[in-house]
Simulated assay, not measured.
Amino acid sequence: MCAIADTGSVRKAARQLGMTQPSLTTQLHRIEKALGGQLFFREPSGSRPTPLGHSVLCRARPIVAEMRALIDEVASTSQREQGTRLHIGSTNSPAVAGWLRRLRVRLPQTDTTIRTDVSANALLHMVATGQLDAAFVHEVEGAPLRVPDGLAEHELIAREPQFIALADTHPAAAQEVIRVADLAGDQWMVDPTVDGEWAGLRRIWAAAGINPRVVHGDYLTTVDLVTAGEVVTPCQPTARSRHGMAIRPLYGDPLAVRLFMACRQDDTPAASADDLFADLTAAYMEIAWASDAYRAWLVRHDGPLPVGS
């Protein structure tokens, strides 16, 4: 109930809780049946509590807080008795594998696990509630994330440019840098579940004076559509090119994200925040300089990473 009220959506709440939407809907109906009334108004824009729902939420939130405190206390005792654990999270990034590899070398006796999610806001919430020790996330320019109180931010890159992926047979692929207006006639693949992505793209389309066709999908499954010439799609500059695909920067770098690691202000139990951030920085630099397109951009712009790292 608290998750639905906080996110304003059963779908978003299910993702935050690691459940399927039908499972959460069934659970909500079971609670409503037990209490004898409707708890949320279902509207096109989402879900909002009914008067009964507000009353129940007032009782539920202290229970949830006490339960979280109990879980944290038990987990802390378990860590002391069974060894140390480190739980990290990340939005999709090629740097994650290198980050994990370095952490396991630094902390050989620690059980290190990773949680990935397309929603940076969901990961930040998990750090704030103790489900994760740290999270590496991206914040789309012009679409600020909801960073909970009590979290410390360690900024990796203030402004990472986002590139474009397109078929290597596309006429614009012959250019070193592509203007957004050159892609006005193309169909763009957009993942609307990525926090801030839709708003960022609409902003750059408006600035370029275009209104392209859009198809919604998952960036992880777009490779075949891109190489077939069916869509173009924004991508990270560190993304690996595939056969039949070209990755190019956009003229003027109109679409960018801020990369940072978030953790609770008190250090994580297995390692200091400085150590976690140092390994993340090294992993990011490794994949940045391994990318042909990003390496060329970095050399042209003299940064933001040390050349040769």
Rank of each mutant, 00 (worst) to 15 (best):
A95K: 01
Q79N: 13
T113Q: 13
T112W: 05
S47L: 01
G83S: 13
V96G: 11
T77K: 13
L39R: 00
T110R: 00
C58F: 05
I88W: 03
A120R: 05
R104G: 00
P94A: 14
V56D: 01
R42F: 05
D111L: 06
T110P: 02
A60T: 02
N92C: 11
L86R: 02
G89Y: 07
H54Y: 10
N121K: 08
A95H: 02
R42M: 08
P94I: 05
T91N: 05
R61F: 00
L86G: 06
N121L: 06
G98P: 12
G37V: 07
T50L: 00
S90F: 07
L52C: 03
Q38W: 09
R68Q: 14
S119Q: 08
R85H: 14
V105Q: 07
E66S: 14
T84V: 15
P44G: 02
S78W: 15
V105C: 06
A65E: 15
S93W: 06
I88M: 03
S45K: 09
R101E: 00
R80K: 14
L57V: 02
L86A: 09
S119V: 10
P108K: 03
G46W: 07
S93C: 13
T116E: 06
S119A: 10
T116K: 04
H54N: 11
V118M: 09
R102H: 01
A75P: 12
P49F: 00
G36D: 12
G89K: 10
L52W: 06
Q109I: 06
V74C: 08
A69M: 11
V56E: 02
R85G: 13
T116S: 09
L103P: 04
P94T: 08
A75D: 10
V64M: 12
T110I: 01
R48L: 00
L57C: 04
N92G: 11
V64N: 12
A97M: 08
E43C: 08
Q82N: 15
S93Q: 09
T110F: 04
S76G: 15
P51D: 09
T84G: 11
A97G: 15
A97Q: 10
G89T: 04
E81K: 13
P108W: 06
W99N: 01
S90D: 07
P94H: 13
A120L: 11
E43F: 04
R68A: 05
D117W: 06
R102S: 00
F41A: 01
W99G: 01
A120D: 05
F40A: 02
T112I: 07
S45I: 10
A120C: 12
Q79I: 15
G53T: 02
S90V: 09
S90K: 03
Q79S: 15
S119I: 12
L70S: 15
F40E: 03
P44F: 08
V96K: 05
G37P: 09
I88E: 02
L107I: 02
S78L: 14
E43L: 13
V118L: 14
G36H: 11
L103A: 01
S47F: 01
R101I: 00
T91E: 03
L70E: 13
G36V: 03
L100A: 04
Q38M: 11
T77L: 14
L52T: 02
A69Y: 07
T116P: 04
